[in-house]
Design a protein around this nucleic acid. Structure first.
Lengths: 383, 383
DNA sequence: CGCATCATTGAGAACGTTCTCAATCCAAGC
DNA sequence: GCTTGGATTGAGAACGTTCTCAATGATGCG
């Protein structure tokens, strides 16, 4: 007669199988494999051999039920097809894997409802923590709830004033200001900024929709360094870059900072259209600052359609050093962000928070690097 | 006196909490919420109300332990930073979410060992299925094992002859042949192909490493339509594109198909260097076919460094319609792959396999589209 | 009225781990 | 010899669900 409850050939081996094979109890087998408690060298070796013989792999689901840890992180980004987020995601997955974590990925397409749904799904799956590039600055209740319930949140690329969470960003204000300064130094005075912001046009709450396809932002508050916390929903990153742009212009004595400022809405406006409108002005800009690489593509496209050559007729600078920026002709001068490091640092912050104690939120600000290439020249009318 | 085992305020509500609140048993509460078995309308409503009142969310880990389903898919791709895979990943996550699944993401960097490790980790987490762009054609034992153990595998973008798994690809041979034909029609006779293949140089097994930084492939086997199944490890996709290229050249009466064929190794060779070498030949090619967008960037970069203008001096065609291809000057003619659909179809195949029965592997081949733009002209010496 | 059928319900097992705790054993110290 | 203490071990609970099964009550039919 055989022992009853023998392992059927097909089924993957479980801990009782290993214990039986090694002639010890479940408890000892578990201790030997997980490496806690105390186990005699002899038992440890027998368990190890049995586990190897049976090809035993611990069921992480069962383990997670007990330990409360899944070793899984949730990453919620706007759009992996944007090279910036692709790089960030790459940094996240690599750093996570190195630390023994896996990554559950979700896209929001800049939509808060999708973000909320993603948080819900990920928390149902009991991720140990969340890395989020929030779609909105103010609507962060779902993030605060997760954080309060013991599912740490780290903000990536974007800030959310009310949320007591760690964040990893770059100095958007300073980087934008620096980039625009370089255009000013080259002699430009009519410098445009093209950006895509939140999911609704920016302006005062009671603003009537403008007739133009794009709306200029309201004048900045008195203190230019602090973006208005009561402003509507666009993400902090875009706002900070705009403030940096304004600051640089003001610094150069240009008081009318919003003449060439064009912001559109994700999925509604096309950066190429915004640029086309700018280039059709009676006094068109001689330089354009794009707030990310996908917008830069629109700017480039519109410039070409207007028969303008870069940089002879139009200088161009953009955030994000994508692969094409250094391969096209002319090579584009950029504000390079440390994309992979941004993701990696977010992972490290998150894991520290998961494994450590609560504490006051930490805000990591990484350096950007301005890479001078061939897309900036003196303005055409400067001669 | 209170009932013992009351829910402490902090802890999230569990099924027993809901059952107690609704005055029914765990079993009935579970049935009411999961919607199986039979429950009286009255009980169903009381449970629903109790669940809502307590903010109950089922613990998916516990559920998965019983059902054996995690509603999680594993996606293993080479590199999310490659726009092709970024698009595919986007398609995967979107389709998965729509079908009620989440996606666990892993990068391999074209490394089989990393792929093997990823499969192990993902299976430990009990993903319901795997979508894989395999790093190698032959070393697929880990994939076969997963498949055999009831974790279905769907191959994406690449084939693996020995593996009885579904696959979703495009007609690489036909698409490459078509692209090269268009260069031939424009009058080109010296057409180069630049590609990056596996993790080792391609050639006969006993081949000695060439002195040149790149190695030309051995002559094709007698039957040009079927890539040599005994060839070493480069992925099928690249091989098929090369065969399509050769077929087009042969069709045009060019017997020496490998003169301008340059293949490098991931992480070892730079496409720009391969191109530079080609352009330095005494009879340089007048057109280059790049097998993906990142290679095209290298080609463009090398062309610029050689002072060549596209398309006047050099025509360029590439696989993958990335955003920059339609924004740069000149706009690049491309073989567009349905990237998002590739991902979505892989998800659908996988879910069908997960929820349905086993069966003979299905091979889905999607259409590519050649998009004619401005990067093809007649060869400079044709006048 | 007796019996079969059906809907509804709850008790308890099951999933595969980790954790708590008490029991056992052995050597050392008094 | 007896006690102390540490190392080692196994029994059993726990995690939060779903599933199996038997029990109950109501209904319909002959």
């Amino acid at each position: 007669m055989t022992t009853n409850r023998r392992k059927p050939a097909g089924r993957p081996a479980t801990l009782p199988d290993v214990a039986r094979e090694a002639g010890v109890s479940r408890s000892t087998a578990s201790r030997a494999l997980a490496g806690y408690g105390s186990v005699s060298p002899d038992a440890r070796e027998r368990v190890r051999a049995a586990a190897e013989k049976l090809g035993y792999r611990a069921n992480q689901l069962a383990r997670s039920m007990i330990t409360g840890r899944t070793h899984t992180l949730g990453a919620i980004v706007a759009d992996i097809q944007n090279p910036f987020f692709a790089g960030v995601t790459r940094g996240i997955t690599d750093a996570a894997r190195a630390a023994g974590y896996q990554v559950l990925l979700a896209n929001t397409d800049e939509d808060v409802a999708a973000e909320r749904a993603a948080v819900k799904m990920l928390r149902d799956k009991h991720v140990d923590g969340l890395i989020v590039a929030p779609a909105a600055t103010t609507e962060t209740g779902h993030l605060a709830a997760a954080h309060a319930a013991g599912c740490p949140v780290v903000l990536l690329d974007r800030q959310a004033p009310g949320l007591p969470a760690d964040s990893v960003t770059v100095d958007n204000h300073g980087a934008a200001q620096d980039a625009v300064r370089r255009l000013l130094v080259a002699g430009h005075r009519r410098i445009a900024l093209v950006s895509l912001l939140g999911t609704a046009p920016v302006g005062t709450p009671a603003d009537t929709p403008g007739t133009a396809p794009s709306t200029a932002l309201e004048a900045a508050p008195a203190d230019p360094a602090s973006p208005d916390p009561a402003s509507p929903d666009p993400v902090s990153t875009g706002l900070e870059r705009i403030e940096g742009y304004r600051a640089a212009l003001r610094e150069a004595g240009l008081t009318d900072t919003d003449t060439y400022l064009r912001t559109g809405t994700f999925h509604r406006e096309d950066p190429a259209d915004l640029t086309a409108e700018l280039l059709s002005l009676s006094e068109p800009p001689t330089a354009v600052f794009a707030t990310d690489s996908m917008i830069a593509l629109g700017v480039l496209s519109a410039a070409r359609d207007h028969g303008l050559r870069v940089p002879e007729h139009l200088s161009v600078v953009t955030f994000d050093d994508t692969d094409w920026a250094r391969a096209v002709r002319p090579r584009i001068s950029v504000v390079a962000q440390p994309v992979q490091e941004l993701g990696a640092r977010a992972v490290h912050s998150l894991i520290t928070r998961i494994e450590g104690t609560a504490g006051t939120p930490e805000h990591i600000v990484l350096d950007t690097e301005f890479i001078e290439r061939e897309s900036i020249a003196s303005p055409p009318d400067a001669s």
